[in-house]
Amino acid sequence: MTESLAAPVTDALLRVQRSSGVSLAFAGMVQNGRGVRLSRFVGPTVGALDGVAVELGHGLGGKVVTLNRPMVVDDYLRTPRITHRYNSVIAAEGLRAMAATPVVVDRAPIAVLYLAVHTDDPIGDRALDALAVESRALEQRIVASRASVAAAGADADADSLRIRLTEAYAQLRDLARSVDDEALATQITQITRTLLDDEAQATAVAVELTRREQDVLALAALGYTNARIAENLGIGVHTAKGYMKDVLRKLGAAGRLEAVVIARRAGLLP
């Protein structure tokens, strides 16, 4: 069982065992469509089940995965509804009635939750309802977790793209300053404007920055210090500090990071 699922599955077993009153709750993960490996247990067990690989179509868990629906048997060792490949293991554990339900994500079983008793008593509706509730809750938790991971990945991709755009923007501004051809410099400057957010510019409060202030802001967005900005622009450090101070004042920012955030919202930076 993967580490990311081990804790949620164990929590689900604890709740279902406590609410149902059955003696044993356990679970296994579906192994790449090959079967179910049992690995989590709540309640008395001699250890015979631990690590057992239940093949698809066999035993209760294997059939549950194949049918993709819950099942319950009143006497595991004698029921004609399943194969009996694992009878020796079940007998070693002293189990009788047993229920199992698949945990289904994206229409595919990824785990199986079990309930079992060591007596002749059948598994009642209360226990089956508890098993169904925990199965659905676990499915929802896994889906939410995967969505969170996907969103984090999307955010990371967006941040990476933002960094590349900011670097390209600063490099183009540097190129525009370095060329002697005024027409070419104008064209490059126009290209830099295509990297900015037109919608943000249209809705933001107008902020007038000089060309040099824009250069300083673009380099500050890359995390450059005043000394590095000065070196890049060929100006003194005190001059760079002065430009940065003017940028902060015009944007109403208390620091560089806030200035970059405000500038992006205003469409002044990619």
Rank of each mutant, 00 (worst) to 15 (best):
T2E: 13
E3V: 11
S4T: 03
T10G: 01
T10N: 11
L13K: 02
L14T: 07
R15L: 15
V16N: 10
S19E: 15
S19A: 15
V22H: 03
L24N: 04
V30M: 11
Q31T: 11
Q31W: 01
N32D: 15
R34E: 14
R37L: 12
L38A: 09
L38N: 07
R40Q: 15
F41R: 03
F41C: 08
P44K: 06
T45N: 10
V46P: 00
G47S: 11
D50L: 10
V52P: 02
A53M: 13
V54G: 09
E55Q: 14
G62Q: 00
G62Y: 00
V64M: 09
V64N: 04
N68S: 13
R69I: 02
M71L: 15
I82L: 14
H84F: 09
N87Q: 06
S88M: 09
V89Y: 02
L95H: 07
M98I: 14
A99K: 04
P102M: 11
P102Y: 07
V104T: 15
R107K: 10
P109G: 07
I110R: 08
Y114H: 13
L115N: 10
H118M: 06
D120L: 09
G124L: 08
G124H: 10
D125R: 07
D125F: 00
L128Q: 15
L128C: 11
D129L: 12
V133A: 08
V133Q: 05
V133T: 08
S135K: 01
R136H: 12
R136N: 01
L138G: 10
R146H: 12
A151Q: 05
A154M: 11
A156S: 10
A156V: 06
D157I: 07
D159C: 01
A168W: 00
R173E: 04
A176E: 12
R177V: 11
S178T: 14
D181T: 03
Q190W: 01
L195G: 12
D197P: 00
A200G: 14
A202P: 00
A202Q: 08
A204L: 03
A206F: 04
A206V: 06
E208N: 09
T210E: 07
R212D: 14
Q214N: 12
A218W: 03
L222A: 08
Y224S: 09
Y224V: 00
T225Q: 09
T225D: 10
N226E: 05
A227G: 14
A227I: 09
R228G: 00
A230W: 02
N232F: 01
L233H: 05
G234H: 01
V237P: 01
H238R: 11
H238V: 11
L248H: 13
L251G: 07
L251R: 05
G252C: 05
G255C: 06
A259H: 10
V260M: 03
V260T: 08
A263E: 04
A266L: 02
G267C: 09
G267D: 08
L268V: 06
L268K: 03
L269M: 02
L269F: 01
